[in-house]
Amino acid sequence: MSDLISSDDPFDAGDKQALQAVLAYMIPADEERPGADDPLIMADILTTARSSADLVKAALAIYRSTDLVTLSQTRTPEVNALVSLAVQCYYRDDRVMASLEMEPRAPHPQGYEIPEGDWQLLEPVRQRGRHYRDVP
């Protein structure tokens, strides 16, 4: 990201290359949406990852010493942290949200509509009557 001061960047070129490979495998692109290795999404991931760089590096170390399939089957805090990071940045990307038919915006201030529903559904509950105990 352009706002990263390079000396603050905890990830070296090797880390970034490994991360790109992992992300491309984890959430690949298809005809409707980019993959998690898309440059914009990956930039978001790298920025967000700065506070958990040690965990991400540890996950990448597992990949380096094994392979992508093994990494995908590993459930350690490091790998879980990497998955969490990837999905939180991936599923807030405008293009991804559009592909899910979601408006690319924060919930507030517009909010959302949901159906009120039919309160007649309570009729059988009303008919069953009182449902609590008397006390001495």
Binding site: I114, P115, D118, W119, L121, L122, V125, R128
Partner: peptide, 19 residues
């Protein structure tokens, strides 16, 4: 509001005759 989730669950409770 009940919404779709509340409606689905309400029907489930009614089917079992539960409060």
């Amino acid at each position: 509001p009940l919404g779709r989730a509340g409606t689905a669950l309400a029907k489930g409770f009614n089917q079992l005759d539960w409060h």
